[in-house]
């Protein structure tokens, strides 16, 4: 009686648990055939060995830390500014009428196209990287905050008016909680974009960071280092996304009824 539901659970999940092994298995098999040269395709265990080496000599950790620090500061600036801008425009519609168009125009240009202009203006150092990440983090948070604040259900606003909430009480007990699920979705998007962009920014030029490690690996024809980089960036991206999804799920469990 106890065993069979657990077994059923396992049977249901088994194929999904299998899928990474299938990928690795196919990868191994193709590598075994030696159809591709060793500088094109290497077997998974060699990638794993390189991973352990890079881990042991601290290089991988240092690079992840460097990229992480850039993401964190860029994201904090961009998301913070986005939160303020979104709130302000949501609460004072006149602001949106003045700045909405500017917003839309800037948003149309993909972050990558700003890079050359920013490099000309700020040089190729840390400033440029942090600005480009902040720029990318700004828009999802600003837009989702604006959306969340604007869509506070009308009937709740009526209740607040009825009880003569002051501005602070209105913010704390109505606007913020109502907008939170939407804001969190924006934050998740912003963080996953920041991670995507830090890798790109480091490809332009950097002396540290996971993107730098991969680019250096390419120039040295070290496919194993490049592969480790691909896997690590993927795993970090996955963890960041999952973490924020958990937060999102937690805070939207009391989701407000719409309208």
């Amino acid at each position: 009686m106890q065993l069979s539901p657990a077994f059923g659970w396992l049977l249901k999940r088994l194929p999904s648990l299998l899928s990474p092994f299938i990928l690795i298995g196919v990868w191994e098999l193709v590598a075994q055939t030696h159809l591709f040269a060793a500088n094109i395709l290497i077997p998974p265990q060699q990638v794993f060995r390189t991973f352990l080496d890079l881990l042991a000599d601290g290089e991988l950790i240092d690079n992840i830390k460097a990229s992480g620090a850039r993401v964190l500061s860029g994201f904090a600036i961009g998301a913070g500014a986005g939160l303020i801008a979104g709130m302000a425009m949501g609460l004072y519609p006149a602001l949106e009428r003045y700045f909405g168009l500017l917003f839309t125009v800037i948003r149309q240009v993909p972050f990558i196209a700003w890079a050359p202009l920013l490099i000309v203006a700020f040089g190729i150092g840390e400033t440029f990287k942090i600005i480009i990440i902040a720029n990318a983090a700004f828009f999802p948070v600003a837009l989702s905050t604006l959306d969340g604040v604007r869509n506070v259900p009308r009937h709740l606003k009526d209740v607040a008016a009825l009880f003569r909430f002051d501005r602070l009480a209105l913010m704390r007990s109505l606007v913020l909680p109502a907008a939170l699920p939407s804001i969190l979705t924006g934050v998740r998007l912003a963080l996953s974009r920041s991670w995507m962009i830090v890798v790109a920014a480091e490809l332009f030029a950097a002396s540290s960071g996971i993107g730098h490690m991969m680019d250096w690996g390419r120039q040295m024809f070290q496919i194993d280092v490049v592969m480790v980089g691909v896997v690590v960036t993927g795993v970090v991206g996955f963890i960041l996304d999952q973490m924020l999804r958990q937060v999102e799920a937690h805070f939207s469990s009391w989701k407000l009824p719409s309208r």
Partner: peptide, 25 residues
């Protein structure tokens, strides 16, 4: 069941992270 989770996981690789790999390939 077999490939759904794999697709979801692979999506998390930042697209520009593939630049060095594709450059080599």
């Amino acid at each position: 069941r077999l490939f759904g989770p794999l697709l979801t996981a692979l999506r998390q690789i930042p697209i520009f992270g593939l630049v060095p790999l594709l450059g080599l390939w």
